[in-house]
């Protein structure tokens, strides 16, 4: 059974300038262990789709219709189930890790809160143990020290690792990652994406990924949906969409991608030769650049990393 099923989702936003149909009838589903990506330009309705599914849009802003089930439970028809789903079977990884945590509570306090919400039977001490273990799993250096830190004492990359750890702490069936790397320095982006892949491989979680970066989509996704003005204009396998775009908009989107040179850059923290100047991460490098390039790569996309389906080190 699919972890997420969405059919004919419509989101209308009530704004001072009138009603905007930000999402205009989209349908898709995601199975366990799968990553489905929504890609599209800014303002196309990607975040609105994700926020609507998690019911994070205020009722006086958004009118939602259609249907969607997370882990078999209706989240569009009623708000009844979403309370029990949030922080248990679904987790959100935000775009900007710098503003995603309560600035006046420590990392440890916030992780313990999340862990105990998902696993009510754990004591505080057990939850703290679990938090440390999770921080080690996301390759955060010196976790014992980090749990006592406040968010402003960590870098963006470190915070995103913390947020991934928090998302995993609840053992979710679905992770929604809304541009998880776009607020980060290019040098740490690859490390974070790699961590997400590693975590998915281990836990078999379903991922709804949102990005406007085709390189990211290509690395991470099993399937992609190209979004334009609230609608999906093209769906399918990544390779198929990239190599043989059917829709005018997709072709423009492809043409707009810059050459991604960063993937084989010694400045890349996950590059074997990279010497981390601030000990930002102790991540053992699972280097996407080490993967063989997909044979179908066209010259203008030479910089785009291999797809998820390729053999992993």
């Amino acid at each position: 059974m699919a972890v997420l099923t969405v059919s004919d989702l419509v989101v209308e936003l009530i704004t001072p300038r009138g009603v905007i149909r930000a999402v205009d009838g989209v349908s898709f589903d995601i199975d366990a262990g799968e990553t489905v990506t929504i890609i599209g330009e800014s303002g196309s309705g990607k975040s609105t789709t994700a926020m609507a599914l998690l019911r994070l849009l205020p009722d006086d802003l958004a009118v939602i219709s259609g249907s969607a089930q997370i882990d078999g439970q209706d989240v569009v028809g009623t708000r009844k189930h979403i309370g029990g789903i949030r922080g248990r079977s679904v987790a959100l990884i935000p775009q900007d890790p710098m503003t995603a945590l309560n600035p006046i509570a420590t990392i440890g306090q916030q992780m313990v809160e999340a862990i105990r919400h998902a696993h009510g039977s754990l004591s505080k001490a057990q939850a703290r143990e679990r938090a440390l273990e999770l921080l080690r799993q996301v390759h955060l250096s010196a976790p014992e020290r980090r749990v006592k830190s406040y968010p402003h004492e960590l870098s963006g990359g470190m915070l995103q690792r913390v947020l991934i750890a928090m998302a995993l702490s609840t053992e979710p069936r679905l992770i929604v990652a809304d541009e998880p790397t776009s607020a980060l320095d290019v040098t740490v982006q690859a490390g974070i994406l790699d961590l997400l892949l590693e975590m998915q491989e281990r836990t078999g979680v379903a991922v709804l990924l949102i990005t406007h970066d085709l390189g990211v989509a290509r690395l991470m996704s099993d399937r992609i949906h190209v979004m334009h003005r609230g609608r999906f204009v093209e769906d399918g396998d990544v390779e198929q969409v990239v190599d043989n775009p059917q829709h005018e908009y997709t072709r423009n989107l492809l043409a707009a991608i810059p050459e991604l040179g960063a993937w084989d850059d010694p400045e890349d923290p996950d590059h074997p030769d990279y010497i981390d100047p601030v000990a930002e991460t102790a991540a053992p490098a699972t280097d996407p650049a080490a993967e063989p390039a997909a044979p179908t790569t066209r010259p203008e996309q030479a910089g785009i990393p291999a797809t998820k389906g390729g053999p992993r080190p």
Binding site: R86, P94, T170
Partner: peptide, 19 residues
């Protein structure tokens, strides 16, 4: 956004308001 994201983690409205 830290409140919205905490809400996505299932933090109660009461806690979001005060804590």
């Amino acid at each position: 956004s830290y409140v919205t994201i905490a809400r996505s983690r299932g933090v109660s409205e009461r806690r979001l308001t005060w804590r």
